[in-house]
Structure formats: structure tokens, C-alpha cells
């Protein structure tokens, strides 16, 4: 599986570390236990198109938002996380 790192170009997935699905962090001051634990534990775990956070650990060390098909492992896009709209 190749991930097209926006800085380094296409690289083997072994250079990256899968971090998590992209999930929104609730406001810690006001989150209810259910909301916070949903953030901690519940995942969509979709079969098909997924949006995930990866880290180009053995490369540029940038967090990358990866669009991937979890059925085929085909990566369709990868963007720098720091350039994403704040979620």
C-alpha cells in the first residue's frame, strides 16, 4: 500500500503509523461522560471509504489525513493534517 505523502511523494505504508479514524475531540470543559467516551472508544469502522489520521513517522513526521478504501486498501488522497480545516 502506497500513501502519497504531500511532502515526500508516494511512500510505502510501512513508513507511516496509523493513528486513528479522524474523530472530533469534544470540548473538555463541557463534555458529558457519554460524549467523551464516545470520542475515546466508539469508531465508525466503516467498510469502504474512510478518513484517517496517519503519521509519516519514518519520513517527514507530518500528520497526514488519508482517504482510503478499507475494503481494498486503495488510498485516494492524503493531505497535511495541519492544513486541514480545524475539526
Amino acid at each position: 500500500m502506497l500513501i502519497p505523502c504531500p511532502l515526500c511523494g508516494p511512500r510505502d505504508a510501512l513508513e507511516f503509523r496509523f493513528v486513528d479514524e479522524t474523530v472530533r475531540r469534544p470540548e473538555p470543559q463541557s463534555a458529558s461522560p457519554e460524549q467523551w467516551r464516545s470520542y475515546l472508544y466508539l469508531r465508525a469502522n466503516r467498510a469502504g471509504a474512510v478518513t484517517e489520521l496517519w503519521l509519516h513517522r519514518s519520513g517527514c513526521r507530518q500528520y497526514v489525513v488519508v482517504e482510503r478504501d478499507s475494503l481494498t486498501n486503495t488510498v485516494t488522497a492524503a493531505r497535511l493534517a495541519r492544513k486541514e480545516a480545524v475539526s
Partner: peptide, 18 residues
Amino acid sequence: GWATLIADMAGVRLPITT
């Protein structure tokens, strides 16, 4: 492997990653 997909059909969210 497909537990999430079956649970989704019943509207139950699971703490699972496959």
C-alpha cells in the same frame, strides 16, 4: 470482522476497530 456492520443495521454503535 463484520460485527460493526451488523450492529450498524440495528443502530447500535460499537467500540470496535477491525
